[in-house]
Design a protein around this nucleic acid. Structure first.
Lengths: 159, 159
DNA sequence: GACTATCGTCTGCTCAGCAGATTAAATATC
DNA sequence: GATATTTAATCTGCTGAGCAGACGATAGTC
C-alpha cells in the first residue's frame, strides 16, 4: 500500500499500525473501561508502578485532565485505586487492586497474541527486531520525560 | 522509558513515535493547512495519484467526511484541485497544482531530515531496517485496502 | 423503468487534546 | 514566621477528529 516513488512514508506506517493495534487490543480488552487506553493505563500501573498520577500521565503521553476521569472509571470498575501519597499530600499514588493485577496478567497474554497476529507479516526474528528498534527510537525521541525517568523507579526519592 | 518487566509495550512505542513525528513534521510544514495531515494528503496526491477522493481517504485512513473539508482547505490554499472524473461523474479526481507539487517536493527533503533526527537514536542501518519492517508490518496488518490496491496504480481501470 | 450500490457532501454526536481557573499543599523568599 | 511562588489534581470550556446517518446525484443490474 505504500507508494511507487514516495519517500517511505514513516508517518503512514506508524499511524496504520497504531490504528490496527488499538483496534485489536480493544477487542481483547472489552472487559476494561476505555478499551486499549484502559489496558495501557492499568498495565503501566501494575508493571511500572509510577509514583504519582502526574507521572503516570506523562509516561503514557496522556493529558492529566483526561487521566482524571480515566482513573475514575478504573476506580469505579474496581481495578485501581487512588491512595494519598504519604510524602506529599497533594499527590495521589495509583495502585492496582488485586483484581486489577489479575485482569492485567490475564490480558498481557492475550494482548501478546494479538500483537503477534498484528505482525504476522514478519517472522519471529524480525518481530523482535522491530520491537527493539521501535522502543529504542521512541525512548530516544520522546520529549524529555526526564522527570518520569528520574522518579520512575518506584518511590525512591533522591537520596 | 519502557518498563522493568512489562511485555515490551508495542502500543506505547508506536504512539510515542507517531506523536513526535506529527509534531516535528507539523513544525516543518507550517505553511500547509492542517500541518502534518496536510502534508500526508498532499504527498499522497503527488506521489501516488490515487484515482478518487474516496481512495485517497481509504489509503490514508482518514474519514471521508474529514477528507471533504481537508481538501477544501488545500483547494483554498491553491495546492490541490478537484477535477470531475470523466469516467464516473460521481467521483472527483484529486490533482495537485503546480505549486502544490513544488511545495511537496521541497517539503519531502525537510521531512526526511526531520525523520532522521527523530530516529537519531538509531544508526543509519537500523533506521533503514526499522522503516522496512514498519512498512511491511503496516501493509500486512492494514485492513483490506484491497480496493485501494486494486485501483491504486493510476487511472488504469481493469482491462 | 425500478432497485440497489457508490461517491461526495452535510449534520450531529462523541471523545481526546488543550488552555485556563481553582483548591490544596509544598517549597522558596524575605 | 509571614508571604510568594510552584506543583498536584480537579473542573470547565473550546477545538478538532472519528463516526454514524441522511441526502442528492450517478452508476450498474435486473
Amino acid at each position: 500500500m505504500p507508494s511507487p516513488d514516495a519517500p517511505s512514508p514513516l508517518g503512514w506506517s506508524l499511524a496504520a499500525l497504531l490504528r490496527e493495534w488499538k483496534q485489536r487490543v480493544a477487542a481483547t480488552c472489552s472487559e476494561l473501561p476505555q478499551g486499549s487506553r484502559g489496558y495501557e493505563v492499568l498495565s503501566a500501573v501494575v508493571h511500572d508502578e509510577p509514583p504519582t498520577q502526574a507521572a503516570l500521565a506523562a509516561r503514557l503521553g496522556i493529558d492529566r485532565t483526561v487521566m482524571t476521569y480515566l482513573l475514575d472509571e478504573l476506580d469505579a470498575a474496581g481495578l485501581a485505586r487512588r491512595q494519598p501519597d504519604p510524602s506529599d499530600r497533594r499527590a495521589r499514588r495509583i495502585v492496582a487492586t488485586a483484581r486489577g493485577r489479575e485482569v492485567v496478567t490475564g490480558l498481557d497474554a492475550t494482548v501478546a497474541r494479538a500483537e503477534d497476529e498484528l505482525l504476522s507479516t514478519l517472522d519471529p526474528d524480525e518481530r523482535a527486531t522491530l520491537r527493539t528498534l521501535l522502543e529504542r527510537a521512541a525512548s530516544g525521541a520522546a520529549p524529555h520525560d526526564d522527570r518520569c525517568a528520574v522518579v520512575g523507579g518506584t518511590i525512591a526519592p533522591a537520596p
